[in-house]
Computed example of a mutant assay.
Amino acid sequence: MSVLVEAKELKKYFDTKSGQLHAVDGINFQIEEGRTLGVVGESGCGKSTLGRTILHLLESTDGQLFFEGKDVTKLDKEGLKALRRQAQMIFQDPYSSLNPRMTVSQLIAEPLKIEKQLSKADVEKKVLELMDTVGLARRLFHTYPHELDGGRRQRIGVAKALAVNPKFIVCDEPVSALDVSIQAQILNLLKDLQEERGLTYMFITHDLSVVKYISHDIMVMYLGQMVEKGPAKEIFDTTIHPYTKALFSALPQPSIHNRQERILLKGELSSPINPKPGCRFAKRCIYAKDICFAESPALEEYEPNHMVACHFAHEINK
């Protein structure tokens, strides 16, 4: 498989009164065509900022972005327009991301009118096809978002993203605001669309059961940096980084005979504003030693295709 999306030392900093906030700080990854990269981590780790930076909703501070092997780090107006035909986003909140003054048909038709020179009849035909694709009943054609439940509103978001036939979609916690039963419907829809259209996803979430179900590969982030990355099954079966271990220990176990001990993190959270050298997890890590506070650990291959950033990964996992 060929690599569709690649980031090299990608950074996104925000200026604050206290200094620069390192929201995304030196991220490296590749996503192959037709695969899903799940991005997990606690709130504030930089997941959503990463997704928005890749799509140029936020401009990167440093580093490089590649799409189909082409450098798309800095784009002019035409270049950005071309990228948007290939890369789209499904937003977290299916209500605030939709214009409440527009009907379902108008919302789905909007990208078609912007990108393609289609007749009114062709636009209507395409809108109906997209509604069928995402499971929206045609009777909702003239309905407004406030008249629909969360699941149907999110289906509108999926239809809007699909309207220009993109190759890559950033899914920014697309099911976090939905009931569990509706979550399953949207996740199955996304998986079916991936199989039918060969779509590539970056799936951002804090729900570990969701990311396990939909992802081929998983990247774990902590305070703007990647701490672990690998195939989804291997990440769940063999967690390496102390933060990943703590994060995954919170996942409920369905068996009372196989209870997992919960790892409760203690200590002070490091500041992402002008961070000092060293591991950003060191203050909360029970394995931390002097070197952890002095030097940032490099991202190294622990096992084939399984990367981890920890000075003592091998000692901890003997």
Rank of each mutant, 00 (worst) to 15 (best):
K266I: 00
I235E: 11
I316Y: 13
I235H: 12
K233E: 03
M219T: 15
E315K: 15
E295V: 10
T61M: 07
N274H: 02
K77C: 04
G278D: 12
K283H: 10
K113Y: 02
S215Q: 03
K160D: 03
V39I: 09
G150S: 00
K120S: 10
C310H: 09
E228K: 04
S296H: 06
S18G: 13
Q106A: 13
G267A: 07
N305C: 02
A232E: 03
A309G: 11
P275H: 10
R52F: 10
T36P: 12
Q260S: 04
F168I: 09
L148G: 02
E196P: 13
L247F: 12
K266A: 03
G135R: 09
N188H: 02
D149Y: 02
M89V: 12
K126V: 01
V123L: 01
E195W: 15
A298K: 15
G34D: 14
A121C: 05
P111H: 00
V134A: 13
A121T: 07
A282C: 02
P254V: 06
V175K: 00
E228C: 00
A184Y: 01
C285T: 03
V180Q: 05
D62P: 13
G79H: 07
K47C: 04
D207L: 14
G224F: 04
I186W: 01
I291P: 11
A159T: 05
L136H: 02
P145F: 00
M219V: 11
L83F: 09
E78Y: 07
A87V: 07
L37M: 15
T103N: 06
C310T: 10
P94D: 12
M131D: 09
E78I: 04
S255L: 01
I54S: 14
E234W: 01
M1F: 04
P297Y: 11
R152H: 03
A161T: 09
L10F: 13
P254N: 11
K229H: 12
G278P: 11
I263R: 02
E42W: 00
L265Q: 05
E68K: 10
E68N: 12
L128N: 12
L193D: 13
E195G: 15
V227D: 10
Q185F: 06
I240L: 09
E196Y: 14
E33F: 03
E6P: 06
M219H: 12
V227N: 07
V170I: 14
A309F: 05
H311E: 11
E6L: 05
I263N: 08
T53L: 07
E268K: 11
P252H: 05
H311C: 08
R101S: 01
T133H: 06
Y287H: 08
R101D: 03
M102P: 10
N274P: 00
G224K: 09
L130F: 04
E268I: 03
T205C: 00
D179S: 03
I31W: 09
E315D: 14
M221A: 06
E195I: 15
T36L: 06
P174Q: 01
V227F: 05
E301T: 07
L193S: 11
P275Q: 08
L57F: 14
